[in-house]
Simulated assay, not measured.
Amino acid sequence: MLNCSGVSRWSNKSYPQSAQFDGKRFRNSRPRQSLSVADYSKMMWDFFFNKPRDTVPDHALPLKIIDAHALSAAADNTVFRLGHSSLLLKLTGKYWLVDPVFSERASPFKRFGPRRFQPAPIGLRDLPPLEGIIISHDHYDHLDRQTVIALKDRVTYFLAPLGVGDLLVKWGVAAEKITQLDWWQSHDIGDIHFVATPSQHFSGRGLFDSNKRLWCSWTLITPELRLFLGGDSGYFDGFKEIGRKYGPFDAAFLENGAYDRRWADIHMLPVDTLNAFSDLKAKWLFPIHNAAFDLAFHPWDDPFRQMVKLAAQGNVALCLPMLGQGIDLLQPQPQPAWW
């Protein structure tokens, strides 16, 4: 068992206790598919120079501003969608942020890289007092350095997979605030039981740190709820194992956006999302990883249109709140097609 009170005591270059670490890098339970040099080069050319116009909306999306009144009126067990995979959760009377990204670009550069086409429904300064931040992995659309730096002194706890905690320390987060976990390890904060569960993805923020930090999903168990936060993942057998160990879940927040068959092993296609939902034995599906950044080649609203159709065919309880809308997780409801 890892040291769970603060950052693990290992260096950020070696995690010998982890079955996912091969001595140099972290790895998935099964190898990723590989693209030829020609296929990869074409994909990169298309991404930067040949993207369809409809990958971003031609109008501002509807949203509900999260102001002081909305926060004070929010009951316990409420979730607010902030865009992409960022969530604001109110659990056991306290607020938690999930994969918060408030910067204009999901990129290491200020003037280059995927730019936000939809503002967040709340500003950093307007966030309520935060109990903690939950991070799934180190990619720029899930871990935003500027957001972390802005919030590090206003947050009591940071939860992250192995290696990501070490990165937070480099950014100035106090080590005693951080708990970083391997897959299947858990940590309790107050009345919430947190488990770092597996995902099938990868990590890296530059040219030389590929898979140097672990990626994960999160299982949260409170006295009233069981929640699954999927992070990023391709479809894999791990969902069945998580469902067996911790299901049934009241709600599953699963990736549905920025997909393509060429990288389906690390980002689920819509039909994969439905399969994962079934494996998790969840009651309500909340599709995320959409409505903020242009990261693929499909129309920006394709995730919504496909998921509504698939959910209807599979009789799946689907909740697609507009950005900023607060949803009672104890009694979710289907939402109108705001997109």
Results as ranks from 00 to 15, higher is better:
203 S>F: 02
203 S>H: 02
204 G>Q: 05
204 G>C: 08
204 G>L: 08
206 G>Q: 08
206 G>T: 08
206 G>V: 03
207 L>I: 06
207 L>H: 06
207 L>E: 10
207 L>M: 10
208 F>K: 11
209 D>L: 08
209 D>E: 06
210 S>G: 09
211 N>W: 08
211 N>V: 10
211 N>F: 11
211 N>M: 10
213 R>N: 03
213 R>I: 01
213 R>W: 00
213 R>D: 00
215 W>R: 00
215 W>K: 00
215 W>H: 12
215 W>E: 03
215 W>Q: 04
216 C>Y: 01
217 S>W: 00
217 S>R: 01
217 S>E: 03
218 W>A: 13
219 T>Q: 10
219 T>R: 06
220 L>T: 01
220 L>Q: 01
220 L>N: 02
220 L>G: 00
222 T>Q: 03
223 P>N: 12
225 L>Y: 07
225 L>D: 08
226 R>F: 01
227 L>Q: 03
228 F>Y: 13
228 F>L: 06
229 L>I: 15
229 L>N: 01
229 L>S: 04
230 G>C: 13
230 G>A: 12
230 G>P: 07
233 S>F: 09
234 G>Y: 11
235 Y>S: 02
235 Y>G: 00
235 Y>I: 02
236 F>V: 05
236 F>L: 05
236 F>C: 14
236 F>G: 09
237 D>R: 09
237 D>N: 12
239 F>V: 09
239 F>H: 12
240 K>Q: 11
240 K>D: 08
241 E>A: 07
241 E>C: 01
241 E>Q: 12
241 E>F: 00
242 I>T: 14
243 G>L: 09
244 R>A: 15
244 R>Q: 15
245 K>F: 00
245 K>H: 02
245 K>N: 03
246 Y>I: 00
246 Y>C: 03
247 G>A: 05
247 G>D: 02
247 G>F: 01
248 P>N: 03
248 P>I: 00
249 F>W: 04
250 D>Q: 09
250 D>S: 12
251 A>M: 14
252 A>V: 09
253 F>I: 11
254 L>M: 09
254 L>I: 15
254 L>D: 04
255 E>T: 13
255 E>G: 09
255 E>A: 14
256 N>T: 13
257 G>E: 12
257 G>W: 10
257 G>V: 10
260 D>V: 02
260 D>I: 01
261 R>W: 13
261 R>I: 13
262 R>M: 12
262 R>F: 05
263 W>S: 05
263 W>M: 06
263 W>H: 11
264 A>I: 08
264 A>L: 10
264 A>C: 14
265 D>P: 12
265 D>V: 09
265 D>E: 12
266 I>S: 14
266 I>W: 06
266 I>Q: 11
268 M>T: 08
269 L>H: 05
269 L>C: 05
270 P>Y: 14
